[in-house]
Design a protein around this nucleic acid. Structure first.
Lengths: 129, 129
DNA sequence: TATGAGGGTTCCTGTCAGTGGAAGGTCAAG
DNA sequence: CTTGACCTTCCACTGACAGGAACCCTCATA
């Protein structure tokens, strides 16, 4: 398979696939003309990466997850720990964003949104005043 | 005031303050020795920026908000619209993260986390199979 | 007077995970 | 033979700073 084929089959942009090769996540062979030549296992790895990234794992996490996946003698505890740590980060980020949403929501609600200059949003940003 | 003073009084790192000057958000004067020389208004602007950034507004949003703040003839509708658009982005991000959290939470829950290799997390990432 | 500590300055590089684009090689169809 | 779709590499850019090098300024102390 050429890169265009794996791109459409994996759902990842060709640029991203080249990047993943660049950083050593995949190692496709090369055809005589220099084109990347992907096997089914490469496609499978890319799909794995795509799903892991969609769950918000960092590239380094993905590297670790792939290594665990390929290690038949892994302990599921290692996978679980990585996932739990990631989960905790996600939850922290959600909490941060919810706090922003709550504050901002209140401010927006209190703003007339008309042609006059008085605005509780700016008032708050300027230090309540 | 020197940069260290405004840093501690605004809560922003000196590096960030220099960066904000670099991109034109603030324009402190200079003393004879070349040091930045901050007035109270600069401090006030930095505090404004700090609060806007804490609410997740982008730097460009902050630029716009500062301009609106300084424009006595602004319409609060413009502020409100900016804030509402930002709010919508925050809510979208929260929804994304919640979807991740839900999926990942399920997977983590189903993982034994012991010394054996069987792992629903890896199974899911590899395409359910 | 020398020295050291603790400010300040600029400039360059790195972060993260790609994206955009230029310049050029390769291949199948018309 | 040419067109157009594909592929290649390489370089620059993103946002919002952080880290660090190399150097300057000021003050207190030995």
């Amino acid at each position: 398979m050429n890169i265009g084929d794996v791109a459409s089959r994996s759902g990842l942009p060709a640029k991203t696939i080249r990047y993943y090769e660049d950083i050593g996540l995949i190692k496709p062979h090369r055809s005589a003309n220099g084109y990347r030549c992907f096997a089914e296992t490469d496609l499978h790895k890319l799909a794995f990466l795509g799903r892991a990234r969609a769950l918000g794992f960092t590239i380094e996490d993905c590297r670790t997850l792939m290594a665990l996946y390929e290690d038949e003698s892994r302990a599921s505890a290692d996978v679980k720990q990585l996932a739990q740590e990631h989960l905790a980060k996600i939850e922290a980020k959600i909490a941060d964003l919810q706090a922003m949403r709550d504050t901002l929501g209140e401010l927006v609600k209190g703003c007339a949104g008309d042609s006059r200059p008085d605005c509780p949003i700016l008032k708050d940003l300027s230090g309540k005043g």
